[in-house]
Nucleic acid binder design. Structure first.
Lengths: 194, 194, 194, 194
DNA sequence: CATGAATGAGAGTTCATTCAT
DNA sequence: GATGAATGAACTCTCATTCAT
């Protein structure tokens, strides 16, 4: 039965997600997932044939969930600055969310596996985020909220800082104050009155 | 003989470095290192007892070598802007150096292993780099080369961007133009005439 | 429905035959046959319960088909020598027929499985072939075509040579010339003018 | 220690031989051999990496032992007929030796594995045996013991018969009388007074 | 009859680690 | 110090076989 099968598939991915959350990527074995799901060894192979495949599927689900980030909670009359602030706030939440966050495993995955650098979905995510931010800044400049003579550069800069924060939060840790300070620095850099 | 022993130790670390360079961190086994060093399995254990320990030692050596980065090639009458530009240029070289660079393995190591976040040498490196950049900027402001009302924030921002570039270069790839653009963006942000 | 069921049974055997042809005996799994037949795993078990059983059934069908070998294409006034020559020609065709021939799998089957040596149908085939050849030779001697003072021995000798050729063709290969030479040698041995 | 290592290697091969003798080729697993040798799983892999490899090595040893067959027990003044008779007697012994004989496993091996037909040592054995027999017959003709106008054909015929006997003895069984009868038939075919 | 998801035993393989020499 | 054979735990993966639907 296709539906039942789909449910089980989803169940496995959700369970596997928790395992990756806890143990990272490379330390997870098929056996770990089998045990976490409480299914048989062979049963797992009916659905997926490697931890790599499972992790990629988990990431896909994750990406779908993330798509909502921008779409919701934006009131009709929000200004560009409001939206950018909201976006950064979301990022901050993400950064500080210690134990419900796949960044660690994701980085590990991308470092441990040979992924194509030109065409992977991390790149797509990065590039599309840059575009969105660029538009927001441009809109802010238009409306007089922001001052910026290189919207594209500013957008990229923001994304690199966020990336830096993200990786830093995983390797050397980062405090809430640190994040606030960096995001504030960014917003200030765009402020019209500068 | 202590000296002989030290030499062998060093030989192992240098050889292991090449292995990590080629295969990353987690994919390297004690066996790999034994084979690369062409020593006996038991022999390796006389010096090190895990890949983790070896990798940490390799990183220590690496860190010592890196200390020279700032110390050399700076002429007496270099201005703050000169020095900062030089520093960024070094960073760029590092970023683009594809195959003689342990970043990949280092990131992998920090993601795959449970490291203390408060006290690890990546943090020390980061913090001391921030301090140095901050001083440079302050000196530049003093001399009128730079304009900046939050030297500390600017320094941290630079380091986060660099970290973002570094991780990005490993996961989704980065072109020389991209690096140039980002570094230019940073320098412009400090330019006095802004 | 019995008839429908019989058809399916036959379909499975015919499909399985192709699989054995391609992969031999021991390398074929129930899964292989299920997939080749495009039926369900459980479905196959309704008809057969092991590859061994299936192979034996395939061989039975095969044997039935082989019974025609002698019956057809023999004109009324054929002499004993003609018929023997025809028989050897058939055997030659069989020997050289590379890919539509179950010998390989059959040998493998008999070597890999513990079969009773006294009572298996290979033995029946062998023994009845010996008898037929013996009669042919006797008839040839009667008619003056052949010379032979041990028809039974000659018949067995022919069958052993054929068996040797058959196994040799599978293990170390055999050329058409080789086969011709051997068959000619046999016929010459029987020739009356020797 | 190379010598010790060689001894163990030999011990494994001898033990494995017994296993193949008992269970054939394809039914033997690495685990079977490990258990028969009473060594560790990993230990076996230090020496061999598959049952195929082990079987090939066993066959090599076997072949070396077989080389003596012709060399020994031949008195100075033996005639060609004597030597041929001796050879056939050896073959007979081999054929009837039920449980100390790798033929079964060897055939199984050659059927189950994809071996090159042009260049495998079975072929070498076959071809060189043909040559030896041919020479023997020629010598016998020379000395007046044999009559034969196609020594080469006769030699090949003998080998094919032997091959047929060999395979037949494994698949449908063969009695001592049968073997005697066939060998006698062969010798008679060569007798000068025919 | 037929399906196909599920199970679990078992084969293959690799390696960290030890230890007698 | 140094060797490398040996161990055994752990992991991957495949299938024969069952059973609820």
């Amino acid at each position: 039965m296709g539906e039942k099968s789909q449910n089980k598939r989803k169940y496995i991915l959700e369970t596997a997600r928790k395992v990756f959350l806890e143990k990272g990527y490379k330390n997870v074995t098929m056996k770990d997932i089998v045990e976490a799901c409480d299914i048989s060894r062979g049963g797992l192979y009916l659905y997926f044939s490697s931890t790599r495949e499972i992790f990629l599927e988990v990431l896909k689900l994750e990406a779908n969930d993330d798509d909502d980030v921008f779409g919701s909670n934006i009131s009709e009359d929000a200004t560009a600055a409001d939206i950018l602030a909201l976006f950064l706030k979301e990022q901050k939440k993400e950064l500080l969310r210690k134990n419900n966050n796949l960044s660690m495993a994701t980085y590990e995955f991308f470092f441990a596996e040979d992924m194509p650098k030109k065409d992977n979905f991390l790149k797509h995510q990065f590039d599309s985020a840059v575009k969105i931010i660029e538009k927001l800044i441009a809109a802010g400049v238009e409306s007089g909220e922001f001052y910026c003579d290189d919207c594209s550069g500013a957008a990229r800069n923001i994304m690199f800082v966020l990336e830096g924060l993200k990786v830093t939060s995983q390797t050397i840790g980062i405090t809430q104050e640190s994040v606030d300070r960096e995001l504030l620095y960014i917003m200030r850099g765009l402020a019209a009155d500068e």
